[in-house]
Write a protein that binds this DNA or RNA. Structure first.
Lengths: 128, 128
DNA sequence: CAGTATCCTTTCCGATACTG
DNA sequence: CAGTATCGGAAAGGATACTG
């Protein structure tokens, strides 16, 4: 394994980034993860918290995150049904990466728009 | 601007992440950025370094990165034509975020596959 | 060599209707 | 309430041919 290192160092870097992006990249996953960072949420809460997402997309993304053990899904056998999602400790490990992305992205928005509050307003106003 | 903070903190976070992902996310951009971190490259070099990418995709991604001022494009008026791409200092600002993603992604691969060399082999062997 | 244009396939994703 | 199934449009992306 050691003897391939010289050749695979550059690959390791990008493979790592790509693996991470598969897990937490995309349009919805960062938002979902973020909301779970503020505490466990049930399905209907997430649907409200993530504006514009459809039931289908929400389920799809949650299944993906669950498969990668970023989140845990807990089903309460009640009527009506009740499902709660929580970040796993493994999922919390994404926080530093997300923080850096956020930090850079904020700077970027400021650079691009000069005034980032405008962008925020647009975002908050998105009714979809 | 301060008085909107309580309401926009959670938004800012995700808007930042999403802005960053738009700029450096996706299938090809991290790889391209990474290779430019090892020095300026001309088009044909990048095409070789990024296995599986088509001319079209390479151009598209490079244009996107150039637009966001992550990279700079320098054209030498020679025959045959010669174009060189370099990371801007702004683009270098992505390094910490990419490093974190890489770090987490590596851990993730190890966790998922136990032995990550297998994944690397698969990646290196991708001929497309 | 670098880039553009065209065509065509695949994937993503929203809308809707339905089940336990 | 939570989730599944199906359909169709839109967008991403690959193959190929072509231009300066």
């Amino acid at each position: 394994m050691a003897e391939m290192k010289k050749n695979s160092v550059r690959k390791k870097y990008t493979v790592g980034v790509e693996a991470a992006l598969e897990v937490m990249g995309g349009k919805w996953k960062p938002l979902i993860i973020y909301h779970l960072m503020t505490g466990p949420k049930r399905t209907s809460e997430l649907r409200r918290l993530v504006p514009g997402i459809t039931q289908k997309m929400l389920t799809t993304q949650l299944r993906g995150l669950e498969k990668d053990e970023i989140i845990a899904r807990k089903v309460y056998k009640e009527i009506p049904p009740r499902v709660e999602y929580t970040l796993t400790s493994y999922g919390w490990g994404l926080k530093p990466a997300l923080d850096h992305l956020c930090y850079w992205g904020e700077d970027h928005l400021e650079k691009v728009h000069g005034d980032k509050s405008k962008v925020l307003e647009e975002f908050e106003g998105s009714t979809n």
